[in-house]
Design a protein around this nucleic acid. Structure first.
Length: 803
DNA sequence: AACCAGGCTTC
DNA sequence: GACGTGCCTGGTT
């Protein structure tokens, strides 16, 4: 007995481990699923903890009055093969807030869940089958409440002699993971990569075109430029081998790239396979990178983060090329880097005198990628720990899915069943109100915004699918302009989740104050509060999204209805105080900035029970009769242009520049002569070919694949010309084109910008369709007529014989 | 004139 | 790898 005890404790050798969780994945070992917890211990070791105790399951909702034993026996009969049904537990869960009788069906292999779901669905007395569409590793994160990018503590047993994993230590999990109260992650090894491909034919193809440069930069300051061997075409077998060796030697936790989900990684994998190699760069031996969810490409055991995903979310950046994004975020100035036109890369390789430039370009790309990753990863980590999505997937997942994972984590904690994702027909519904602006120039205008209007409405009126009542509205929240009502009590799912999100955000912001500005803690907590805010603000749009698990159209309609009602009531409050309302959109009001504004704010809080704040004050603001467009000048002299061509990505730079300057001149000085003179000078420059071609490029996105277009829009014909040149053009690509001279319709004269010379440009088009309309949009409200501006272009013609 | 397409909206 | 609606504009048909 005593000896037995000794032997046992000796074998177990439990130790307590503190570690930062990077990722959760699973493998099947001996027919049994094994959860793999990848992490970094607090002493800096790369560790892997395995948990063999977790099994896949799903829920069956039964009819309330049914005798469950009959159903249970029918379910048990279905058990078969190498993944039998190992248990069926009857219990109660909440489904949209109401208790339902469920059977939890557990099996062995995750893949078997789908098969059992289909069989069980057909049984009599089964209302629905839910939670059968959740990936096994995410199921583990949900149930054990172990989101990545957090510190944990756990009892583990060391595992010796396990091969197949490239980690410092392996353990078996002996207890539960307990979260630790630590904010700052450990020092992680980040490897940035970028590849250049030999592309004499334009579009590249991994089965044909070799990789010529792989540039690598690490968070430890190493920089490597690996190159192909000479030959025609160049030989890249050794290059790929060198790359694999480099990755294995550096052993990064995070691999970052720019558009590497769609390009670098899949290209390298295919190229390696073509060369008879295997891109075995993960922490699982033999586990090569593969496509995963949300368009993400995953490297087993490492986190592959595509920085492009984060750049995509910055609407201020119109063209999301690496150099533009790096420049915008202050990571690398365009003027201080080497740039090579994408289609000429092969020429820079072939010409030895230019090869240095190619290497510089590759270096600048990889260094800017690494620096961008340092900007984005702290935020991504916070999103990961909130949503439970691994760091490398959270960037690729859209806003809707991020919130959905947060909701799923909340549902599990609340004992709520997770609804299925359903195919639904899209149904439009009424949105926000936009007021008719009072046109002209207004001085001293305050812009007031309701803070987080939609989330606050959802909380205040307890809006959601589980609180919905149609028709009778006694003791309920009645939604004006609809026949919808929502129960006051108990709080519904959305309300509970949103209150938690908003409360957490307040807590984090308080916590932030304890740390000095610029400290790692402050930075991380700031990213956390930002992530919380983004999740809360996505809730209304999510509820109105047909793809959402918690889709609820009447709820979304109710939110906008209350929003419209609220803003109307706020307008009367303002007007009763003698304040002039100049404009308003959704949750904002432009009001004459007078002392009564503070009274107005108080009244809104008191009467409407929603918070409204002064967001900014315009010294002067200018409206046309158009909604959603205005130009304002702030106290510090900064110009704010909203909605106009000047801030749109689909107008030429020259037209935008002219419009912005015209607005500036007119708002600052009121001098229309000065403005028209300025427009004239630009038109003349254009006619003299003094305006660089880049300023004439118009960028438009292909929102579908080329063959789906029914019309010959300019960017569509330009894209077709690019295809003719051997370029790969896909849905989602931004096409940059210029309009060239000729008599045919405009679209037929659109040419990819890099194909055109300044002398090809249709100056007339740029004057009549770009510069003049952009300028007139402002000037016509200051008494300048179209004819006056047309005179400008005519004057130009006589002065300069440009045709 | 009706349409299609694209872009921007807010903190 | 789909969060919502409202609104404006240009170009084609």
């Amino acid at each position: 007995m005593f000896i037995n005890y000794l032997v046992q404790s000796f074998l177990e050798l439990e130790v307590k481990l503190r570690f930062y969780l990077l990722d959760v994945s699973y493998e099947i070992h001996g027919g049994v699923p094994t959860i793999l917890l990848w992490g970094v211990s607090d002493d800096g070791r790369r560790i892997l903890i395995v948990d063999k105790s977790f099994r896949p399951y799903f829920y069956v909702i039964l009819r309330e009055e049914v005798d469950e034993y009959g159903v249970l026996s029918k379910i048990k009969i279905l058990s078969r093969g190498d993944s039998p049904i190992t248990s069926t537990e009857v219990g109660y869960k909440k489904y949209y807030g109401k208790p339902v009788k469920v059977v939890k069906i557990t099996t062995v292999k995750p893949e078997a869940v789908r098969d059992y779901r289909e069989l069980v669905k057909k049984l009599k007395d089964v209302v629905d089958v839910v939670e059968a569409d959740i990936r096994f590793s995410m199921r583990y994160v949900l149930d054990s409440d172990v989101p990545p990018c957090q510190w944990y503590e756990a009892e583990v047993e060391p595992l010796e002699g396990v091969s197949g994993y490239r980690v410092n230590s392996m353990y078996g999990l002996a207890g539960r993971l307990r979260p630790l109260d630590r904010t700052v992650p450990p020092r992680l090894r980040i490897l940035a990569l970028d590849i250049e491909v030999y592309n004499p034919r334009g579009a590249v193809d991994p089965s044909r075109d070799p990789v010529i440069v792989i540039s690598l930069a690490t968070s430890d300051g190493d920089l490597k430029l690996l190159t192909a061997s000479e030959g025609s075409p160049p030989q890249d077998r050794d290059l790929v081998k060198e790359f694999i060796n480099y990755v294995l030697a550096y052993d990064p936790d995070i691999v970052v790239g720019y558009n590497s989900n769609k390009f670098d990684l899949p290209y390298l994998v295919e190229r390696a396979s073509k060369l008879g190699l295997s891109l075995d760069i993960g922490r699982v031996r033999g586990g090569i990178p593969r496509p995963s969810v949300h368009g993400h490409y995953s490297i087993p055991g490492r986190l592959h983060v595509d920085i492009y995903n984060f750049a995509e979310e910055i609407p201020e950046i119109k063209i999301k090329s690496l150099d533009t994004v790096a420049d915008y975020l202050g990571v690398m100035k365009k003027s201080e880097r080497t740039l090579i036109p994408g289609h000429e890369i092969h020429a820079y390789w072939d010409d030895r005198s230019k090869r240095g430039l190619l290497l510089n370009y590759a270096k600048d790309d990889v260094v800017s990628t690494l620096r961008l990753s340092e900007k984005f990863i702290p935020f991504a980590m916070q999103l990961s720990s909130l949503t439970g999505l691994p760091l490398d997937q959270v960037g690729a997942a859209s806003v809707g899915y991020r919130l959905e994972w947060y909701l799923m984590r909340s549902a599990v904690k609340m004992g709520e069943l997770i609804p299925n994702r359903l195919e639904r027909e899209y149904e439009p519904y009424k949105g926000a109100v936009v007021l008719e602006p009072k046109k002209g120039v207004h001085s001293n205008v305050a812009v007031l915004d309701f803070t987080s209007m939609y989330p606050n409405i959802m909380v205040k009126y307890n809006i959601g699918p589980d609180t919905y009542v149609e028709g009778e509205c006694e003791n309920h929240y009645k939604i004006p302009g609809t026949n919808y009502c929502f129960r006051k009590d108990p709080p519904g799912f959305y309300k509970s989740v949103l209150e938690t999100l908003l409360r957490l955000r307040r807590v984090v912001r308080e916590e932030m104050k304890k740390y000095p500005l610029g400290s790692p803690e402050h930075l991380i907590l700031d990213e956390r509060q930002r992530a919380l805010k983004i999740l809360a603000n996505a809730s209304y749009g999510y509820m109105g999204w047909v793809g959402a698990r918690w889709y609820f159209k009447p709820g979304a309609e109710a939110v906008t209805a209350i929003g419209r009602d609220t803003i109307k009531k706020a307008i009367s409050l303002a007007e009763n105080l003698g304040l002039e309302v100049i404009y308003g959109d959704t949750d904002s009001l432009f009001i004459s900035n007078r002392p009564e504004v503070s009274k107005f704010i108080e009244e809104v809080m008191k009467v409407l029970e929603l918070e409204i704040k002064v967001d900014k004050v315009y010294k002067r603001v200018f409206f046309t009769e158009a909604k959603k467009r205005y130009v304002g000048i702030l106290d510090d002299g900064r110009i704010d242009i909203v909605g106009f061509e000047a801030v749109r990505g689909d107008w030429s730079e020259i037209a935008k520049e002219v419009q912005e300057n015209v607005a500036k001149i007119v708002l600052e000085t009121g001098d229309t002569k000065k403005a028209t003179d300025y427009v004239r000078s630009v038109v003349l420059e254009l006619k003299q070919q003094k305006i660089p071609l880049e300023k004439l490029v118009i960028w438009k996105t292909l929102t579908k694949s080329l063959d789906e277009y029914e019309v010959n829009a300019p960017h569509v014909t330009a894209a077709k010309k690019m295809i003719g040149l051997g370029f790969k053009v896909e849905k989602g690509d931004k096409i940059g084109y210029v309009i060239t001279r000729g008599q045919t319709p405009i679209s037929s004269r659109a040419a990819p910008y890099f194909m055109a010379k300044l002398s090809d440009i249709d100056v007339d088009y740029y004057v009549k369709h770009q510069i003049v309309p952009a300028a007139m949009r402002i000037l016509e409200y200051f008494g300048v007529s179209e004819k006056q501006l047309e005179a400008i272009s005519k004057a130009g013609k006589t002065l300069f014989d440009f045709k």
